[in-house]
Design a protein around this nucleic acid. Structure first.
Lengths: 132, 132
DNA sequence: CTGAATCCGGCTTGATACTG
DNA sequence: CAGTATCAAGCCGGATTCAG
């Protein structure tokens, strides 16, 4: 297996793995949200919108586990917990931006392709569709 | 909602969408596999390894629908179908590479963080864990 | 305020069998 | 070779409830 001829799976495993982490429904949103600075739990919750308490907790735990986010507890009477992007987290955010740029730049193209595909399908596949 | 203060969800929706497409279990592998040139169905299947016929079909359909992959049928006796990255697909592949580079560069750091986290958890959370 | 525990429905994935 | 159809299993995510 010389370089340049290695199996695709080899080259991709890391990508697939990181994608498995940030490819879920909320991680990216959380990371983006934290990009501007530390935030508290419910601040994040509101900032993201639509995320359940459970999923925010789960997402945060996963991110923390992988060293992307740090969690700071201030044991005041109403407990205060701040989440913040680690250096690793920030570097990831930067890498993700490339994907974001692509997404923004090509959003229209993708949607157009999608429409074309769906339309072509609709006028071809339905059983017994005739010209009349 | 002035720029610079727009809701995170706004900025991220495109990213989340593209992530929903390529964030599944196989899309990235397929795209990477096709990066080197056109491939036939079972070629891809072997090249990826571990993917079921069904999932390859589904993944390919999705990619084709979004204009990332083109499908060319040659109606010979054993049918021949070639899949190829479109220009759009290639551009995506380039964007994804940034993420891939990050993943490769920081793989160790992530795994280390993971181990640390799991270890810290193991020595703290189990009910009634004592020093003895 | 932050978070854990539980219950549950749905989507995604996979195994298998069948078709052209 | 390429693809579809069907069915079962598992994980994900959401709502709700309880706790420190």
């Amino acid at each position: 297996m010389e370089p340049g001829n290695m199996h695709v799976t080899e080259t991709c495993r890391p990508v697939t793995e990181i994608l498995a982490r940030i490819g879920d429904k909320w991680s990216i949103l959380v990371v983006k949200c934290l990009a501007d600075g530390p935030m508290r739990f419910n601040e994040l919750r509101r900032g993201i919108g639509g995320i359940s308490q459970r999923m925010l907790t789960l997402t945060l735990r996963g991110l923390e586990r992988d060293g992307l986010v740090s969690r700071t507890v201030t044991p005041t009477v109403p407990p205060r917990v701040d989440y913040e992007l680690t250096e690793l987290g920030h570097s990831l955010q930067a890498a993700v931006r490339a994907l974001g740029d692509w997404a923004i730049a090509n959003r229209a193209a993708v949607e157009a392709a999608r429409s074309r595909y769906d339309l072509a399908l609709a006028s071809a596949s339905p059983p017994l569709r005739r010209t009349g």
